[in-house]
Amino acid sequence: MNLLNVIWAEMKKSHRHNFNNRLMYFSLFVWPVIQFVDSYYAFKPFNLGQDSPLSRFVPVEKLGLFLITGCLAYIFFWSLVQSAWMMGYEREQGTLEIILLTPAPRTLVMFSRAAANLLEAVWLFSIFAVLTILFMGGLHVAHWWLIPIAVVILMLSAIVWGGFLNTIFLFSRDAGFLYTIFEAPMAFFSGVRMPVMAFPLWAKMIAYAFPLTFVLNILRSIVLDGKNLSAIFQPLLELFLILLCLIIASFILVRYAEKHAKETGNLTLF
């Protein structure tokens, strides 16, 4: 019950606080759409004919689907980075201190923030993505009930990732720097715009550090390759383990951050 109460509180707050400015949808809709177009055209200089080497990884006619699913999953993860940035605002404004003054469970607050922001952040681009997918055609799904499962997996992973980012941003002053480290490489290495399978080993190693890589793998297996549940069992398990690690890390980090703040009177760690 307390969980729902905190989520509800965060939802009401972030709705009024983060989304009262319609300009927000530039970052949540206009930019992603332009970036999707950009990622599509970035392949144009290459041989995209029937004999394209790309078809070893993605059928050329499904490149559009490949990219839009990548962008869709990415926007789930990206939107939460923006909400994590608000942590910096809360620190400056002193409201973070007031949150620490309450007895509300801290890690819960971190994950609630992520959950509370997600739906409102992604709905517009999701509609765009679904329309684009329907327009392009070429979906290949084994069972239709796998699609809601894919959506749930995507949402849960994004929330865990968002909660983890909230925790990290909780005690850093320089959010831009963390963004550069945690977020930008994700866009490039986790297979949003390129098939991870094509990567050399070093790039694969970076790719598999991000949960988005696993999520995209599962999502595309379901909607592009028509795989059934047993075929995606192993990547699902891997994803589950990664998410578990992130949750545990968040717990530890939040406790550490509060302990540190209590000792130094300062939330900033690095």
């Binding site: 307390n2 509180a9 009401k12 707050k13 009024r16 309450t102 007895p103 509300a104």
Partner: peptide
């Protein structure tokens, strides 16, 4: 809204 938010954090 401020009060509602902080109130919820107090349960």
């Amino acid at each position: 809204e401020n009060l509602m938010y902080f109130g919820r954090l107090y349960g």
